[in-house]
Amino acid sequence: MSPILTISGLHKSFGELEVLKGIDLTMQQGDVVSLIGSSGSGKTTLLRCVNLLEDFEKGSIELAGQKIGYREDGAGQRRRLPEREVARQRSMTGMAFQQFNLFPHMTAIRNVMLGLIKTKNMPKDEAREVAQKWLERVGMAARSDHYPGQLSGGQQQRVAIARAIAMNPQIMLFDEVTSALDPELVAEVLAVVRDLAVEGMTMLLVTHEMRFARDVSTKVVFMHQGRIHEEGTPDEIFGAPKTERLQGFLANSEI
């Protein structure tokens, strides 16, 4: 089976600071990969490279067999693809953000419908049906006509996940989706993410919820200073960490 996502030799710098120093990662359909590591290790940046919210200088990312973001011209020069093409490739991924980022001037269902109508060119009625279906799946059907400002953080995040996944992406990216939530709201969002994982959605998550990562992942990747420091099954990573760095990191995290 050909992989859904192939990252090879990925380098990324912010000015002088090199935040990704050569990342290689492969994901098959249905894989759930959690990126863990201390802040500044590059895990969020890696996630944002996959949907081209960040540029990268070296290496390549292949999504469903297609190199994304850049192409080589005749002279071997690396060029960024035109915006329309980048936008299309971006819609092959879905992303849920730490701060939800719902559009405040639209109701929940309109938030979900916007991409369906504008990117997928779906007729309005069909978009409404699809959106309603996904809101139901995340347990938000009853609130589909509420504005984000009328919803709790957990509810907003569930709508945001529905908005991303309604686009039918090849892979879902979750960027610390519970970090901005009050503790009592974390569970409802994790339950939604867990359901998606169980149903076979391919997912790449950045998370600080170690217990959740252990439960839900097929693979866990520990990042340190811009490199993959250690990777393995959840049992290997959490049960028998090999490197001192990972042992130290886990000792300082709540499990």
């Binding site: 949907n51 081209l52 919210l53 915006e83 329309r84 936008a87 299309r88 971006r90 819609s91 991924t93 879905g94 992303m95 953000f97 980022n101 719902l102 559009f103 916007l114 991409g115 504008k118 990117t119 997928k120 945001a160 908005r163 991303a164 686009m167």
Partner: peptide
């Protein structure tokens, strides 16, 4: 960023 992530152009 959210708008971009659902594939909207500028």
């Amino acid at each position: 960023e959210a708008a971009k992530s659902i594939g909207l152009t500028f």
